[in-house]
Amino acid sequence: MQTITEFETDRLVIRQFSEADAPKVFEMLSDEEIARNAGAPWPYEMKHATGWISMHDDLFKKGETLPYAIEVKDTEELIGCVSLNNMYTPNGPGDLGFWLGRNYWGNGYATEAAKCMIEIGFQTLGLNKVYTFCLSGNVGSEHVLKKCGLIREGVLRQQMPRGGKFIDMIYYGILREEWSQTI
């Protein structure tokens, strides 16, 4: 597995997390909606952030789960995470994930970071497909996925318990051949 660990977009640097990022990760994920949507433990504690980051070198060596930090070029501020996950099977698809600290929503950053991650998936990792599951009602996330060219392929009904109810999860995906027509 090739382990290129830094990429650039217009406004962002996509890089590996380091130990020094833990306090900021802890701060951003101390928000229940974000932590739950990111699949992080709740309540979120500082030890979750340090423990998670300490696993990253191993994750990158294995290559099945690749979590990248999103940093704003101008301010060098860490604003969130974008990742490709669940790449367990040979030639299998990559599962796209992303979250931003609440202060950074609404600036197009998630779209910019996700587009970069998709390009990493197809170009650097040679994936055939990028997909993800998005909670029904997560309007922001669905917008990001659509802007990145992902297509809705199905709905897993009542897949996820949340607030005493079971919520649908929507499957979005994009194939390499579809993506290559968008660039």
């Binding site: 055939n128 392929e153 499957y171 995906g173």
Partner: peptide, 21 residues
């Protein structure tokens, strides 16, 4: 609930996963 296009690599080919719930 969906047909997830080329989600599975099987016997040298990409195959769709047809999902029922």
């Amino acid at each position: 609930e969906g047909e997830f296009v080329q989600h599975i690599w099987h016997q040298g080919q990409y195959r769709n996963a047809v999902w029922y719930g």
